[in-house]
Design a binder for these strands. Structure first.
Length: 257
DNA sequence: AAGGTCCGCAACCGCTTCTTC
DNA sequence: AGAAGAAGCGGTTGCGGACCT
């Protein structure tokens, strides 16, 4: 009995690595004319020396119509951060919420930009001046009500120090309602009470909270970073009527325990 | 200019889930 | 019900370009 019995079918030497424009054309035109059907038969019928899996990936991540090929917008990044906080590494589910983006693209962008770049270990995002301007222009056109969300935070390292972005926000928001709450709090608008926190885990360390409290007392700055607990206290103390507002990004902060 | 290092992205790999029979 | 194949998913790898020395 010979093993050759198992190998009667001529085995095609499959190609790996980057796709050539020619291969792209073959796959694109095949799917355009015949549809996908079974992925395992696609490369055979399309005359490609690839496996079905590779074809599927190439189509989904690169050739499929409707894909955006441009860099992620601030709004998209904001959405990714929110979704990641809500669902973790569910890249494909996130992709469904971001038209024109693939799970692979979102995953790569998270690992290379959002995880360590704009976000810091302490759970805050570094806000560039350009980001701040974009953020403010969005809210200028659509002024927040007394209970709203500001989707950006400032790096806490800049807290209490001179910071262009923070100063810009102070200036730009001066005409807007003075109290803003983070998105992870649901507020009873009638009574001004926190009725629900969307995250059960501690948002920031006790040490950081103490640091903020000290800074809050000492700071002459108009803007303040508030922890969930501090926001809660502030509401209870009727701080809504003061000139304080909180800007806090919960997505990354939730990772900080 | 050349070699080394870093970083982003495309693609692969292997495991899980779904579907079909 | 369960086996087998297909599809989906997420972690990881490796190539290539940019940047640094």
């Amino acid at each position: 009995m010979g093993l050759k019995q198992f190998n009667n079918k001529p085995r095609r030497k499959l190609k790996k690595g980057l796709w050539s424009p020619d291969e792209d054309d073959k796959l694109r035109s095949y799917i355009h004319n015949h549809g996908v059907g079974c992925w395992n038969t696609v490369p055979i019928n399309a005359g490609l020396l690839r496996n079905g899996k590779s074809c599927r990936l190439r189509w989904i991540n690169y050739l499929r119509p409707g894909l955006k090929r441009e860099t992620f917008s601030l709004e998209e990044e904001e959405k990714i951060l929110r979704l990641h906080n809500k669902m973790g590494n569910k890249w494909s589910q996130m992709a469904r919420c971001l038209p024109g983006r693939t799970d692979n693209e979102i995953k790569n962008h998270w690992h290379t930009n959002l995880k360590k770049g704009r976000g810091n270990n302490d759970g805050f995002i570094t806000l560039t001046d350009a980001d701040a301007k974009k953020c403010i222009s969005t809210h200028e056109n659509n002024p927040p009500t007394s209970i709203t969300t500001i989707p950006y935070a400032c790096n806490n390292e800049s807290f209490g120090k001179t910071d262009v972005s923070l100063a810009y926000i102070d200036q730009a928001l001066s005409n807007l309602p003075k109290v803003f709450f983070a998105e992870w709090l649901t507020i009873d608008q009638t009574h001004g009470e926190v009725v629900q926190s969307n995250l059960g885990n501690p948002l920031i360390t006790r040490d950081l909270q103490e640091e903020y409290k000290t800074n809050l007392q000492n700071s002459s700055m108009q803007s303040l970073l508030l922890s969930e607990e501090m926001l809660y206290e502030s509401i209870l103390n009727g701080i809504q009527n003061s000139s304080t507002y909180g800007v806090f990004y919960p997505t990354l902060a939730s990772k900080c325990t």
